[in-house]
Design a protein around this nucleic acid. Structure first.
Length: 415
RNA sequence: GUGGGUGUAGCUCAGCUGGUUAGAGCGCCGGAUUGUGGUUCCGGAGGUCGCGGGUUCGAAACCCGUCACUCACCCCA
């Protein structure tokens, strides 16, 4: 049997309405907060991601779906949304108008990782990006939108973690201190952390190995090494969240993995997801547009993993549909007339269906039941000959003979 | 890329230390009702026991390999 590609998942009919619901909430809320939708391509020149995400990150080093175009240029399926949006913003000069500085997107991303609970090779993200200001209140706006997105979906037991990783310069000073602190304990750290010491020192902070957490317990705190501007900014963000009563906890060990992050970083986690507990995360990326040869432009955004959201959502989010009329047509004369009637019902805006596989009236009604039809329209040879149909209420079992040519009118009048 | 767990019917699973025609529940189809669903009763269809090799008189079961799924590490949403 032919199967789907490893790590890719079908969204089957029974879950489609749940996805529609998630997407509707995302669009509605983003729009309420003044964000406009942007739809960008799902692949770009590889260079875009290599430059913005950072050449030494895992995403770029080993997780990208990269392929050569026919002219030899290297293309990559988007592993995340921010880089593409930033590129589009520069390419179309969207920074000039306040109406296009706040953008949101919704769509699939691709990363070649080993699949696991809440992690797929094609996954979907909802994300927002706000360009052009480093006013701490925009940070608050973005975080609030993220928080309210989850509240609107009625997700429980979430926690918002927040930190500031400062500017590039702030960080350099801190990393030096961190290395000094850790160097005598280097041999006690786990293998991963020994490697991180030189390549990605900050990551040692959120190592899961208990012995590492113990050794790094009294490590210097990043916030103490922030410049005054960074510190004031961070405090203003926290004040803003407090004034809106958004519950947060400061997590000194929260460091984001992508190179472009600076200052404010945050993530929202759920305890019900196994190892992949982060359902939404983001931060400020004030340096990114310059890296892409744009003007110096502060910016902040977040991304939400929609598969993870979907896992947390209660089943059966089915929205109400209009009543279904089931055409039970049978017999040589009845079936073709019923088929024509089916078409006419649909033309007049009525939700109607039949089951061509069912031959007998019994089988037809059984199908009507499986489809949860409100009414069955019974049309056999007898009815065909007299120009009538039997309209059966599937809940009350009440039946009524209706003239064929009056049926649609009758339905529209209400049953 | 590394490690653990699991592969038996469409789905969820049972199958004792190897033993003869491989089972259940749900679902599906049909009958009881010559043209009336959901409940009930009766019947039926559906399986290369993931795949390949080995041990054995005999393998779904034991061994080796392989593939798939899954969880975790790494990393991330």
């Amino acid at each position: 049997m032919l199967r789907s590609v490893k790590g890719l998942k079908d969204i089957l009919p029974q879950h489609a309405s749940q996805w529609q619901h998630i997407e509707t909430v995302a669009r509605t809320l983003a729009s309420q907060y003044g964000f406009s939708e942007i739809r960008i391509p799902i692949f770009e020149f590889t260079e875009l991601y290599a430059r913005s995400i950072g050449g030494t990150t895992d995403i770029v080093e080993k997780e990208m779906y990269t392929f050569l175009d026919r002219d030899g240029s290297s293309l990559t399926l988007r592993p995340e949304g921010t880089a593409g949006v930033a590129r589009a913003v520069l390419e179309h000069k969207l920074l000039d108008s306040p109406s296009t500085r706040k953008l949101f997107y919704l769509g699939p991303m691709f990363r070649h990782e080993r699949p696991q609970a809440g992690r797929y090779r094609q996954f979907h993200q909802f994300g927002v990006e706000a360009f052009g200001t480093d006013d701490p209140l925009i940070d608050v706006e973005v975080i609030t939108l993220l928080w309210n997105f989850f509240s609107s979906l009625c997700l429980k037991d979430l926690s918002l973690n927040i930190n500031s990783i400062g500017t590039q310069e702030d960080r350099e000073g801190y990393i030096q201190k961190l290395r000094e602190f850790l160097s005598p304990t280097l041999t006690v750290l786990c293998e991963n952390c020994q490697r991180r010491y030189s390549t990605n020192t900050l990551r040692i902070l959120d190592c899961k190995v208990p012995s590492c957490q113990e050794t790094t317990q009294d490590v210097p705190v990043l916030i103490d090494y922030l410049s005054d501007t960074s510190k004031i900014h961070f405090e203003a963000v926290l004040d803003g969240l407090t004034s809106l009563q958004i519950p947060y906890s400061i997590n000194h060990r929260l460091v984001r993995g992508l190179d472009y992050y600076s200052r404010t970083t945050f993530e929202i986690t759920s305890p019900h997801l196994g190892a992949q507990s982060t359902i939404g995360a983001g931060g400020r990326y004030d340096g990114l547009l310059q890296v892409l040869h744009g003007p110096p432009t502060p910016a902040i955004g977040f991304a939400v993993g929609l598969e993870r959201v979907s896992l947390l959502l209660a089943e059966d989010q089915t929205q109400k549909k209009s009543p279904l009329f089931f055409l039970a047509g049978f017999g040589d004369i009845g079936k073709p007339i019923a088929f024509k009637l089916l078409y006419e019902l649909r033309q007049s805006g009525i939700r109607a269906d039949t089951d061509h596989k069912a031959r007998t009236l019994k089988a037809l009604l059984r199908s009507a039941d499986k489809l949860s039809a409100e009414y069955s329209i019974i049309l056999g040879d007898d009815e065909a000959q007299s120009g009538n149909v039997i309209m059966r209420n599937m809940h009350t079992k009440a039946q009524e003979i209706v003239a064929l040519n009056e049926l649609i009118q009758r339905i529209h009048k209400g049953c």
